[in-house]
């Protein structure tokens, strides 16, 4: 029986621009477990973002299998993958990517609206913002907030529907160290309180320091998979 949240087996991913073929992933294997606070690291071009796209059901591999919550993504239609993303995945993007014409509260509520949640959208979204100390910013639009505040709203948007897995692409890349630290602590608390699993693609040593597991990619392959003891991760529960 497969108890892994994500199972990536023998995955390759090629990009063909008509002139040259780029082998982004070359027979990659990876299993992600429930409760992981996992950092995927590696130099530019090592395949981090490509792997995140596959885990996030945004793309399908050229060969190999990706199982997400037991579903074989390669066998799923685009529409079903969209449904899976909507109900079970949360995304945090490097550039925040909040909807600029909606307020912080509306950005968070919007995910619930897309999910078809009928009642209590306002209360759930407000509660999530307050949990992340963003209650006072609820009616501000993204351009009225700092980068750190926007990224916290992006986290609120990612977790409001309590997804099992949150994927974060370079979430601290545009933040200073103080905001980065605060964001990572907040995410660790969410993992601890709600049992969510976090997967980061990052270059940031601070993220690696907070991660409970660090997977290193090089040339599209996993070259190391380091699991830390509870005490080793910064801010981890001792």
């Amino acid at each position: 029986m497969n108890t892994n949240l994500v199972d990536v087996r023998g995955v390759t991913k090629d990009f063909d621009n008509g002139k040259i073929t780029v082998n982004a992933l070359r027979g990659l294997d990876l299993a992600i477990h429930e409760g992981d606070f996992l950092a995927i690291v590696g130099p530019s071009g090592s395949g981090k973002t490509t792997l995140l796209n596959l885990i996030g059901a945004l793309d399908i591999p050229t060969s190999g299998d990706v199982h997400l919550f037991g579903h074989d993504l390669t066998a799923m239609s685009r529409k079903r993958r969209a449904g899976l993303r909507l109900t079970s995945l949360g995304f945090v993007f490097q550039a925040y990517n909040l909807i600029p014409v909606l307020t912080a509260l509306e950005n968070v509520k919007f995910v619930l609206e897309l999910q078809g949640v009928d009642g209590g959208r306002h209360e759930r979204a407000m509660s999530t913002l307050e949990d992340l100390s963003l209650g006072e910013l609820a009616n501000r639009r993204p351009n009225e907030m700092s980068g750190g505040q926007q990224q916290r709203v992006a986290v609120a948007r990612a977790i409001v529907s309590r997804p099992r897995l949150v994927l974060a692409d370079e979430p601290t890349a545009n933040l200073d160290s103080e905001n980065s630290e605060a964001l990572l602590i907040m995410m660790r608390e969410l993992r601890d309180e709600h049992g969510m699993t976090f997967v980061f693609s990052t270059h940031d040593p601070l993220v690696m320091a907070h991660a409970t597991r660090v997977v290193t990619l090089l040339d599209g392959r996993v070259v190391s998979d380091e699991v830390k003891n509870a005490g080793e991760a910064a801010g981890g529960a001792n």
């Binding site: 529409k79 969209a82 993303r85 909507l86 993007f93 990517n97």
Partner: peptide
Amino acid sequence: KREFAVLIALGMKGGQ
């Protein structure tokens, strides 16, 4: 374009 990519990534359906 990026906004639509984000919306699709979040799970927004084609009809929406």
